[in-house]
Design a binder for these strands. Structure first.
Lengths: 263, 263
DNA sequence: CCTCCCTTATTACTCCGACATATTATCATA
DNA sequence: TATGATAATATGTCGGAGTAATAAGGGAGG
């Protein structure tokens, strides 16, 4: 009798079925996490523009097929990352781009989930070309013997596997992580976690479009030698050219890169 | 009946009262936001160390005098910022410091809510001494006439009010923000929002402990002139010395600063 | 005609209680 | 001892009810 009091036919008791539907990233991902991912990518891709007001909680949650609790928790995540802000009566609206925590690893991942904005990629590489040489300089001054050993191991792994394999790319990240860690600057380490992730995405782009155009080992060796020799200026210089070359490779693999024409 | 089952005397139904307590940002602070602030500062201050497991949802929520929903939403915020991670049956545990999004403005505010860690302050200034000169260099290359006008206005405001007033400090932030914005690099703008906030806290420290030891205007004028003249190298150099001087001032105002003795 | 205050309606916010799910820990068995 | 099934437990999800805050509209006063 009371089974169909609403008459909506469908709905009401199918929680687990569509939970994995959205993105289907498999295990370890909760419903509200998947929801945050879904909404986050929608915002980053411009599907919801800054200033837009999202549908009300009740309507939108039902539309997405989730409970209000799960929806609200997802919104809290987006709020925590500066993407949206909610106020009673006014609703939940997308904030201006300046308010977004673009360096948050998860936000970065959402930004690269779709077609990445070339301007933003340029900005990230520019930031990288500032941070990493400075970190290499500090690392040359402060590195311990343990740091050098880790870097050498990572370099060896890079040589064994190439950048065409996942193991090789992982070793590459380990190498850069080791440098950041050796810099003794926690803020830079955190920043590298963000930039490194972004670089990881672009590296995949490089692989996708062309064969590896350059052997990256010599550049890395120069950086390693300078840090091992405790030569700050050489380390900064070597890292600077390494990033520049990586930028060049990435640029050539992205079709319509805005060739820095401005005054 | 159920009003005093725990016997904690206080609490239970005074949500708006403590909302404005924390930093006093005024209105707009909800219960789960205040909770996140409370737990966030507790974690940043070391009250909950990495690896620690928080009490269960039901127990902890009751202990804090809030519903499970509000508690969970607060935890989602902390999770979004990389402070904690939850898994069924395993509980919610504090993650390692490397996982924390230390550059998140809110996390930064939590870090400076208590006694700030001098090591971390040093790291932030070090990062600032890398970012801001680079931003000034880019600004000198890319600034528009509008950017120059904004910077000039901010500089004038700095002159009128001094750094002893809130209006003066606000103008100072406007000046630096204008430079970052003129750099045309979105990533650096976002980063400045974080660092700028941190610098703001330390500036308050400076004011607290001593009178203003130095007139900051000349340094700023040098930076402004170089950017207005589109001289990248001069802009970077001027900004570099500006940050160094600010660092020196801050260092002298914090009692036991580790005097950088290492090799 | 404009300004200011008050009323009202809408929306997010908070709470509650139940069930589902995932993971760990335990125990029986080979 | 090793390994599998089993049970215990904490997080995850759900639905609904009531509260509080705020934006919008309307009325009184200038």
């Amino acid at each position: 009798m009371e089974t169909s009091e609403t008459g909506d036919a469908t709905t009401k008791k199918r929680p687990s079925a569509k939970a994995t539907a959205g993105t289907g990233h498999g295990p370890g991902r909760r419903l509200h996490g998947a929801l945050a991912h879904k909404l986050g990518t929608a915002i980053l891709s411009g599907q919801y523009a800054p200033g837009d007001v999202l549908p009300g909680e009740v309507v939108f949650a039902e539309e997405l097929g989730v409970s209000r609790s799960a929806y609200r928790e997802a919104i809290q995540v987006l709020t925590a990352k500066g993407l949206v802000a909610s106020r009673p009566k006014a609703g939940t609206r997308v904030l201006a781009r300046e308010r977004w925590n673009l360096l948050d690893p998860e936000v970065l991942a959402w930004a690269f989930a779709g077609e990445p904005d070339v301007r933003f990629v340029r900005d990230l590489f520019e930031l990288r070309s500032v941070i990493e040489p400075a970190a290499a300089r500090l690392a040359a001054m402060r590195r311990s013997k343990d740091d050098v050993r880790i870097m050498r191991d990572a370099l060896a792994a890079m040589r064994r596997h190439t950048l065409t394999t996942e193991a090789g790319r992982s070793a590459d990240r380990d190498f850069h992580d080791a440098i950041l860690r050796a810099s003794g600057n926690q803020a830079m380490v955190v920043l590298s976690a963000s930039i490194g992730a972004a670089v990881h995405w672009t590296t995949q782009f490089k692989q996708r479009s062309r064969e590896l155009p350059r052997n990256p080992i010599p550049d890395h060796v120069r950086v390693f030698d300078a840090i091992a020799a405790s030569d700050p200026d050489a380390a900064a210089e070597a890292m600077g050219s390494l990033v520049d070359l990586a930028l060049e490779d990435t640029r050539s693999s992205m079709e319509d890169w805005p060739r820095e024409k401005r005054a």
